[in-house]
Design a protein around this nucleic acid. Structure first.
Lengths: 215, 215
DNA sequence: TTGTCTTCTGGCCGCACGGCCAGAATCTAG
DNA sequence: CTAGATTCTGGCCGTGCGGCCAGAAGACAA
């Protein structure tokens, strides 16, 4: 019996889990180098040094492999950033720390994030051609950040603005900071992040400097 | 002799140009609906109601067809936005008008911009797997907007900030405004654009309100 | 050592793709 | 009307893909 046919989830052997991780990492590397179109099961297998059939043995198909990549990378970055935010009391500080921590994660996980981008913008599972993830994929991020902005507005730290638009824009700024850094290897990622933090501090802060308490 | 073998460019017959345009439009529609992977020459031909070979007759290959799409859409939007900017005297006004005009273009050219995005993020012509366009594609936009920001800074309208980061971020905000609108059909694009204009006005304006003249 | 369960190999299958071409159809100039 | 140029058809070709499987190889408990 092939293990990927199991109902869902529990009790995978250690060896099996190791193989799955190995294949996932190979797929991540291939995605980052050759893009989604260039990532065939044959190439992923070759990079590990195994036969192509092993992937079919451990994963239900190419789609499941891709989804595992998204799940793993997404969970990882979310955990990293959220753990950093716990220490921040003010909304202003949390916003700046969001940008800093994301930049730091990008610096140390370039390959994973490139792969994530490839899958999110290309994987289609339904026959109608709709993207499996797409932008809607960011919705949980938008929601969380929106809540942060509202808190800052109620505390008087932030001026009144559309929290949803601000959330979307922050995410866009972070995504393109990454994309720009990837294509400009000499670019100073840290400085870019600080510049972004300043940018959004100016964009969000209350017009009246004295109104720090709740009005 | 096949017309696509001509040295480059001039004297294409009217009929031929019409066919090329027809095929390009079909490709744009297909890209917008089914994405890059789903856009085969067969499907593009089917949508026009012609044989697949006609595309090979009028274009050197799939890559040339895709490049023609980019060239056409890119030139169109650039012309639209630049014509709007001519009327603006101040850097602040030009920034706001940039955002407004791009949003208006998006509203009226949804399909074209979807297709442009598909090609830019997927077309690879070199065997090493590098993207044909990628983010570097935005470089002329960055340069022009950077010049605008510097002018505003010298005029005292804008605070000191990194003009390159601000340029990249404005473009990111516009791109994601489009992406968000595409996935949320009920979203108010115009309101989003105004919100963005406010956002960047706060982000860029000089700290000292009195310093409107050159210092 | 033997038997069973897990894991892997190597290769085959059908499919969709982009490219290509021989010849048919259509248009146009003389 | 005729001859040549332009445009199109329909189908064939090689390639690479994801999926699949029969049987070999390895791990391990009895």
């Amino acid at each position: 019996m092939r293990p990927e046919d199991k109902p869902d989830g529990q009790k995978r052997s250690f060896v099996e889990e190791a193989r799955r991780a190995q294949i996932i990492e190979s797929a991540i590397g291939t995605l980052a180098e050759l893009g989604y179109t260039g990532t065939s099961l044959a190439r992923v297998a070759e990079r590990v040094g195994i036969s192509k059939g092993v992937i079919s043995y451990h994963f239900a198909g190419k789609a499941e492999l891709m989804e595992q990549i998204v799940e793993r990378v997404y969970r990882d970055i979310a955990q990293f950033v959220l753990s950093r935010l716990e220490k921040e009391a003010t909304a202003t500080g949390a916003l700046r720390e969001t940008i800093r921590s994301v930049a730091e994660y990008m610096r140390d996980h370039r390959t994973q994030l490139l792969a994530l981008g490839e899958v999110v913008t290309n994987l289609r599972t339904t026959p109608d051609g709709a993207l499996r993830y797409g932008i809607a994929f960011n919705e949980p991020i938008y929601d969380a950040r929106e809540a942060l902005f509202r808190r800052g507005q109620q505390a008087g730290e932030f001026r009144p603005f559309d929290a949803r638009v601000m959330s979307v824009t922050v995410q866009a700024a972070l995504d393109d900071m990454f994309a720009y850094w990837v294509t400009h290897p000499g670019h100073d990622l840290e400085a870019h992040a600080e510049e972004l933090a300043d940018l959004f501090e100016h964009a969000t802060r209350s017009e009246d400097p004295g109104a720090t308490a709740n009005r």
